[in-house]
């Protein structure tokens, strides 16, 4: 559905994207991961036809992205990475403005989304908080029920409750057969929502894999809080897991890929708490590439 083939855009200073190639199949949810400045937005701008590629090409549904924009946009919902709404309008006026430009007459889906994301659409956009503006952007991308969604960091600025609501929306859209590209720099978010993950770093794709094989390769660290120092040292002396002692009673076990083994072993000890470390992109890179960052 979305094809990017050898896409290259050199902004100089080693900025840009280089030889990006990936495919997003119909009904697939593709998570586009990478640190800030890695090239996610640049890639997406090519899909939207804002930039001329130095080399390579991208197509959406077989149509060339730079020149067949008008036809492509009939099927696309876009959420820009930067909040750039028309300030002078209220939320509702903006939705009506966009609907008219899209020649969409039915605003019932728009109203459902407004209710769902609890947006006060009569507020002037100028006076909205970042989170409210982000809701406007989300609704704008989804309100015409497009077949393809291109979302550039869709959850930035949304509070945790709205992020959960957004995740639900994504899974519903996925069940409706939508093709979705969403970028993020948060691994957890992508892991929850996506089928396939592509990681970009310094303008180059470093991996494209489906979420299951990533999960299998994923190594997770856990912090174990034991009931007392004695229990902790008993564990430390007997375990074959890699570990690091944090305080007298707490131990971090590292790079666990089979949680069952750990749980079996831990059943012998008195544990107060287990905390799993938030899985950051940094870790993903480390585990994937043995820590080599360049």
């Amino acid at each position: 559905m979305i094809q990017i083939n050898n896409l290259t855009k050199d902004f100089g200073n080693r900025k840009g994207v280089f030889h990006i190639t990936f495919n997003i199949k119909e009904k697939e949810v593709f998570g586009f991961l990478g640190p800030n400045g890695a090239g996610k937005t640049t890639t997406i701008r090519h899909l939207m036809g804002f930039l001329n590629a130095d080399a390579g090409e991208c197509t959406i549904n077989g149509m060339e992205c730079r020149h067949q924009t008008a036809a492509i946009m009939k099927q696309v919902g876009y959420l820009p990475g930067e909040l750039a709404l028309l300030d002078a309008m209220t939320g509702m006026q903006f939705f009506q403005f966009m609907a008219k430009l899209r020649q969409q007459t039915d605003l019932s889906l728009c109203r459902q989304l407004i209710e769902r994301f609890e947006l006060d659409s009569s507020t002037s956009i100028k006076k909205m908080s970042k989170g409210m503006k982000q809701k406007v952007a989300v609704i704008t991308a989804f309100m015409h029920d497009p077949q393809i969604l291109i979302l550039d960091e869709p959850t930035s600025g949304l509070d945790p409750l709205m992020q959960i609501e957004f995740a639900k929306l994504i899974s519903e859209e996925k069940n409706k057969g939508k093709t979705i590209l969403m970028s993020s720099h948060n691994f957890d978010e992508v892991e929850k929502n996506c089928d396939t993950i592509g990681i970009i770093r310094a303008g180059e794709m470093v991996c494209i894999e489906d979420i299951h094989s990533i999960r299998q390769k994923k190594r997770q660290n856990y912090t174990l809080i034991f009931s007392d120092t004695e229990e902790a040292s008993k564990f430390v002396n007997n375990t074959h897991f890699a570990f690091g002692q944090l305080t007298d009673a707490s131990v971090e076990v590292k790079e666990i890929n089979n949680l069952n083994n750990l749980i079996k072993e831990l059943s012998k000890y008195k544990i107060i708490d287990i905390q799993s470390e938030k899985y950051s992109l940094e870790h993903l890179f480390m585990h994937y590439y043995g820590g080599s960052k360049s």
């Binding site: 939207m48 804002f50 924009t69 008008a70 946009m73 876009y78 820009p80 430009l101």
Partner: peptide
Amino acid sequence: AYLLSTPH
């Protein structure tokens, strides 16, 4: 970006 994300 919004204007150009409509079919024009």
